[in-house]
Amino acid sequence: MTSDTRLLPHSRNGWLMLTAGAVALAIAPQFLPLYYVELGTSALIAAMLALSMQVLVGATGLVSLGHGAFYGLAAYTVYLVSPESAAQPMWLTLPLAMAVAGLAAFLVGLLSIRTSGFFFLMVTLAFGQMIFFIFHDTKLGGGTDGAYLGKPLISAFGATFDLPRRQRPLGIYYVALIQLMLMYAGLALLLKTLFGRALEGIKVNEHRMRAIGYDTYTIKLIAFTLAGSLAGAAGHMWALHRGFVNPEIVGWHQSAEALLMILLGGLGSLHGPILGALALTGLGEATQVLTEVSKAPYVPEKIAALLRLLGERKLLVEGLVILAVVIMLPRGLAGIGSKRLDKSGGGHA
């Protein structure tokens, strides 16, 4: 029994690869056209949301379908304080968005933490949908059509970084990347603390944790609130990136997608959700590559036709890849190349 958490890399090589990935993400935009930089920002935001959800799913064993609601709620908070006509600085909007999302998560958690398993999933879905319908059915946030907002100004310590228009997407990319890295680092440190160990204990066997004296209700509530406010950071980043809110970002689909990224990337590691988010976003683009390949002169006509078909069918490729992952890689993408046997036995089979 080592004192290290399961969710972090287990060897120096693992940490090296993680660092290499972070460096690659940091230098990639310098060589990519703006379109891919913006796509990259979307992927990083999805990664932030998925990573915040991993606090619940991977670390504590709580599967929530209301998580996306906190993300959307944060984006709407930005809309309410930073309207299109008067953009506010980020040092104001970010803490506020995180606080509102965290408060909502605290209130939802207060009621729903008592349930577990499938029931927890459905209660959180119910509360998430309530938040969704508040924005969908009332005029509070522009109704079903959504609304434009003033993108928060990137500023800190009194200085505002106002980039020339053409470079703004690059600046936003780095803001997202820095937040994602901070979130990962913060969570990695947290998981090594006694609190983090307690979360994992709850995931493996909650009854035993309670029996040895842990107040598992409070611990889970803290985790739920923390995850909600981190989802708020991701939602704030979405508003900063897109400058637009609509009810869709609050709906349960958002949670399902984040869950999908976690499952695709791997439940058993903190970096899995990031891998899953990047892979899922990249997959949509990769289909276009197939179309390009089909145009090459030496490709037989039948294969070219198949490639063209797949190139046009993004969801088909996505579906087939997910199917292949769930059948062949029970531990997700992060499990590739890892020889360590899974002794955690997370959940019952």
Partner: peptide, 17 residues
């Protein structure tokens, strides 16, 4: 015999297909 979450992943893929 797989975990519920694997079933979620499987059936989500089926929706897309």
């Amino acid at each position: 015999k797989r975990e519920h979450l694997d079933q979620v992943l499987l059936t989500f893929a089926l929706i897309l297909l």
